[in-house]
Amino acid sequence: MSVNTVAAARWVDRWERQQQRYAIDREEAFTVIADIVEGVTADRRAPLVLDLGSGPGSLAARLARRMPRARVVAVDADPRLLELGRAYYGPA
């Protein structure tokens, strides 16, 4: 499956809206998760962070932006979601 960035943006936006309906205060939860991960890995030069069940990589992309020295790996059982994430978020 090959997805262009425009189509990926449309699908990831749909994913984000759908997830927000099920996970109330999702952005706040992502902030808390990032705070904890950042705190736990503060003594590491280049921590490895795994986002298991990542979907298209919504949390992984936020962690990568917030922790630029970290290596963030998104893992999901659905290859379509990973492809959307690669097309939308790029190498981050």
Rank of each mutant, 00 (worst) to 15 (best):
A64G: 07
I33H: 02
A46R: 15
A29V: 13
G57Q: 02
R26I: 15
R65K: 03
E28A: 15
Q19K: 11
R26Y: 12
I36T: 13
G55Q: 04
D13F: 08
A61N: 06
A70Y: 00
V73E: 09
D51T: 05
R17E: 13
Q19L: 13
S54I: 09
M67Q: 09
I33R: 04
T31F: 09
G57H: 02
D25P: 01
D13G: 14
G55L: 05
L59P: 02
V12N: 00
I33P: 05
L59F: 05
V73H: 04
S54P: 06
V40E: 03
Q18K: 06
R62W: 10
I24F: 15
R62M: 11
M67G: 08
F30L: 07
A23G: 07
G53S: 10
V40K: 05
A42D: 06
S58W: 01
P47C: 00
R66E: 02
L63P: 05
R14C: 03
T31V: 12
L52F: 05
I36H: 10
Q18V: 07
G39R: 04
V72C: 01
A23M: 14
V32S: 08
W15H: 15
R17V: 11
R26F: 13
R44T: 11
G53K: 10
R21F: 04
D35Q: 08
W15Q: 14
L63S: 03
I24Y: 15
R44Y: 14
D13Y: 11
A61V: 03
E16A: 15
G53T: 09
V73I: 15
E16M: 12
W15C: 11
V73K: 05
E27K: 13
D51L: 05
Q20V: 08
A70L: 01
E27W: 12
D51S: 05
R65L: 04
E27D: 14
V12A: 01
F30H: 06
A46V: 06
G57E: 06
G55W: 05
A61I: 02
A74V: 07
D43W: 07
L52T: 05
T31C: 05
R26C: 10
S58N: 06
Q19C: 09
S58Y: 00
V49E: 03
R66Y: 08
G57M: 03
I36F: 11
W15K: 13
G53M: 11
R21Y: 01
A64M: 08
S54V: 10
Y22V: 08
G53A: 12
R26W: 08
R62I: 08
